[in-house]
C-alpha cells in the first residue's frame, strides 16, 4: 500500500486552486481565437478580444481571470492501493483555505444557506470521490462561478421524450439563460441515472477540454448538433447579439430506471476553469 502524507494533498489542492483561477486553458484561448474569425458582430469581436487580453493579464500577473473565484468543486479519483495518513477531506479543505487565502482569491461561500455568514476562506469545498484501481490520487479542482451555476437545471422527463426531448430542453435552457451566464458558455449535459446523479454528470461533463468529443459517435453527433443549434440562437458574447454563444457542448450518460428520464444542464461561463494533478 502506497502512503501519501496529508500535507501533499493540502499543497496540491492549494496550487490547483490558484492555477485554475489564474491560467485559462490553452483549449479555451484557442477557441476564443477561432471564434474571432467566425463572429459577425463588432461588439462580439471586441468582447472576445477583451477576454484574450484578460487571460494574458491574469497569467502574467498571477491574478484571477474573474473576481468570482467560484465554489471549489473537487473531483478526486482515489486509487484503492493508496493510503492517506489522516483525513483526506480535511486536507482538501485545508488546501482550499490555503489556496484562496495565499492566492488572493475571492471568498464566496456562506456557512449556512439561510442563517450563515461568509466563511472567510472559501471552505467547505464540494468533493466528489470515486474509487479507481491503482496507487495514485487524481485531483481536479474546478472553481465554479455563481452566475452560470444559477442558469442550470435538472428535468425529470418521460422516457418517451427521447433524445429530441433532451435537445429541446438544452436549447430552451440556453435561450432562457440569455446574457446571464457570461456567454460564450460551455454547456454540460447529463442524461440518465437518478435525480441527484444526473446533475453530477452534467457537472462532470464540464471537465472535458474544448473540442473533446464523447467516445460514443451517437452522443458525439448530438454534441455537434447542439453546438451548431446554440450558435444559431443569436445570443452572442455577453448576450449582446452575435454568432459565438457557446464554445462547446459535452454530454455524459448513465443507465436509467425504466420509469425515469432525468436530464440536467449545467452551464459554465467562458472561464472554463479546471486544473488536474496526479499524486
Amino acid at each position: 500500500m502506497r502512503e501519501v502524507a496529508t500535507q501533499t494533498i493540502v499543497d496540491t489542492v492549494a496550487r490547483l486552486c490558484m492555477e485554475a483561477n489564474y491560467f485559462l486553458g490553452d483549449d479555451v484561448i484557442k477557441v476564443f481565437q477561432e471564434g474571432l474569425k467566425k463572429e459577425e458582430s463588432e461588439t462580439g469581436k471586441n468582447i472576445l478580444n477583451q477576454l484574450l487580453q484578460n487571460a494574458e493579464i491574469a497569467k502574467t500577473e498571477n491574478i484571477p481571470i474573474c473576481q468570482d473565484c467560484g465554489f471549489a468543486v473537487v473531483f478526486m479519483e482515489l486509487g484503492t492501493d493508496v493510503c492517506v495518513q489522516g483525513n483526506i477531506i480535511d486536507a482538501i479543505n485545508e488546501g482550499v483555505r490555503k489556496g484562496y487565502t495565499e492566492g488572493y482569491l475571492r471568498k464566496s461561500i456562506v456557512s449556512d444557506p439561510i442563517k450563515g455568514k461568509n466563511t472567510g476562506d472559501n471552505t467547505p469545498a464540494i468533493v466528489h470521490t470515486t474509487f479507481v484501481p491503482g496507487d495514485r490520487i487524481k485531483i481536479t479542482v474546478a472553481p465554479k462561478g455563481g452566475g452560470s451555476e444559477n442558469m442550470s437545471e435538472v428535468k425529470m422527463g418521460k422516457p418517451a421524450d427521447g433524445i429530441e426531448g433532451v435537445k429541446n430542453f438544452v436549447i430552451d435552457r440556453v435561450l432562457r439563460s440569455s446574457a446571464n451566464p457570461c456567454p460564450p458558455i460551455v454547456v454540460g449535459v447529463g442524461i440518465g441515472g437518478t435525480f441527484e446523479y444526473v446533475a453530477f454528470l452534467a457537472k462532470k461533463a464540464l471537465l472535458r477540454d474544448i473540442g473533446q468529443r464523447h467516445p460514443d459517435p451517437f452522443y458525439a453527433d448530438v454534441e455537434r448538433e447542439l453546438l451548431e443549434r446554440i450558435n444559431k440562437l443569436g445570443i452572442g458574447p455577453m448576450g449582446l447579439g452575435g454568432r459565438i454563444t457557446a464554445l462547446d457542448v459535452f454530454i455524459e450518460v448513465h443507465p436509467r430506471h425504466i420509469a425515469s428520464f432525468p436530464a440536467a444542464v449545467n452551464i459554465n461561463c467562458h472561464a472554463a476553469r479546471h486544473k488536474t494533478a496526479i499524486i
Partner: peptide, 13 residues
C-alpha cells in the same frame, strides 16, 4: 451599461 463579465483582470486596470 453592460461590461464584459469574466474580464475582471482587464477591467481592474
Amino acid at each position: 451599461f453592460s461590461i464584459t463579465g469574466g474580464a475582471a483582470a482587464l477591467i481592474s486596470k
